[in-house]
Design a protein around this nucleic acid. Structure first.
Lengths: 251, 251
DNA sequence: CACCCTTCAGGTTGACATGACTTTATGATG
DNA sequence: CATCATAAAGTCATGTCAACCTGAAGGGTG
């Protein structure tokens, strides 16, 4: 076998019993009021399967890779078509391709999975019938793992990994802004972090940290009509982080 | 489009002019003496292409995805077949699938790229003729980017990304051990870090850090036959890091 | 308008991590 | 036994971070 990556070998004959399919899916997160209205929590949209295998179960939005679309563009397209969402932040998560993950013996599906963040305003617009719905992320994962309401395919594993990645990434990268509108008081931003990390943060220390690292900048204006001292409004600052790796899906 | 991820849609007709191919490639890193023998540097194996497109250029080892092998297993298999290497650490890097990356208009290649670390002992064993050779990583990247010796396909982009990922990951994860034999003095480990980060580290502070975080444990034994005070030998400790995400390719 | 309530905004303190540097230990060598 | 080379441990100044404290600035209420 001397054929290197990106090989042009055209003679690769798939085993007659397995057909290879390349799909693109996306784990979309949004922040919404939790069950008790204590703290906002992460939600994600799922699509109900209308054919076998896993007919009736919920699955991540996605579809086959579209020709003449790059991977990220294909994720965006498919996501818009299935759910109407156009996320602000989109990033590749992982490629899943275990032999047996398709749920059918005569077919193998390799999925390039993306994860995305949308703002709450963008949540509601789509009405795609009762085959698309939003679910609380942690509860969905819990009910998948205890067998109460399992997801289709290996999408439970994917969801768990996406949650881990989000929680890890938010500690070193200013992605939290993607959940918020253009201008926001620092308390909103802190609530995003608290929701994702699942614990309270000291308002004072949070302010100091986020200002020191320079991921936000003040607009100079203040919020009005508050019941208390009006907070300054901030916007997300142009990214000068050293952590940004060069592969960027966000134009 | 209601077909969710992992879709079973069998009716997807590829555009007649483009054939879709799924490949698996690996960026393998090893530590070897540098050009000047000051400090060891990163090297990687490349494979010379023997057909168009990019005939004669060097490319990452890889090949088409093998049926009845999971993605990581396919990477291991293909790597062993092309270079004889069986890396100690293997991890998925990224999926590359831009429409035009194959260098041919009638074909589209999506590559799932892995990256791997091997120990120097494992380097040399393979003799696959003059179509497989080792190159210094940084110099290869430089000569790709200034046009002196461009790599095939988009493998320059891939190499740059892999180097970034390695340098980022070594700061928060104990992967450096994968370059070393079972037992090693801390100075060896420090040299690995120095080579990858490209700067000297204080031996004393390095020792304190690495012992405090517990990624290595002492064997109790010492090196013998040294020209100086014999150092203690350490081995890598069972991973108790919180940073390890759940998708593990390393059995 | 005096007073209270709430949240904003900035400051202080102590525990701990990090970087630069110094000192002592231990084997081989001649 | 003096010397050499490196290991291993200790010292000290500085920086960072969580926890806590204090005052500021609005609206609401009587």
């Amino acid at each position: 076998m001397t054929s290197p990556a990106g090989s042009q070998t055209t003679a690769r004959a798939p085993a007659p019993h397995q057909h290879l399919e390349l799909a693109v899916s996306t784990v979309v997160f949004s922040l919404r009021p939790g069950p008790a209205q204590d703290r906002p929590t992460l939600w994600l949209p799922l699509v109900r399967r209308i054919r076998d295998p896993f007919c009736g179960r919920w699955a991540l939005p996605g579809g086959p890779l579209e020709d003449h679309h790059d991977l990220a563009a294909s994720a965006r397209e498919t996501l818009k078509a299935t759910t109407g969402l156009e996320p602000r932040h989109l990033e590749q998560l992982y490629a899943f391709g275990d032999v047996d993950r398709s749920g059918q013996t005569d077919q193998r599906v390799v999925s390039i999975v993306y994860w995305a963040l949308v703002r709450p305003e963008e949540d509601a617009e789509a009405d795609h019938g009762d085959n698309v719905a939003w679910f609380p992320a942690d509860e969905t994962l819990r009910r998948h793992e205890d067998g109460t309401a399992p997801l289709a395919f290996d999408h439970g594993v994917i969801l768990r990994y996406a949650l881990q990645r989000l929680r890890a990434k938010i500690t070193y990268s200013p992605i939290a802004h993607a959940f918020l509108p253009e201008e926001f008081p620092l308390t909103r931003l802190r609530e995003v972090y608290e929701a994702i990390l699942g614990r309270d943060l000291d308002p004072s220390n949070f302010r100091r940290q986020v200002l020191a690292q320079g991921s936000v900048e003040s607009t100079g204006r203040r919020m009005t009509g508050t019941n208390h001292r009006p907070p300054l409004l901030y916007r997300s600052a142009p990214n000068r982080s050293r952590y940004t790796l060069t592969i960027e899906e966000n134009p």
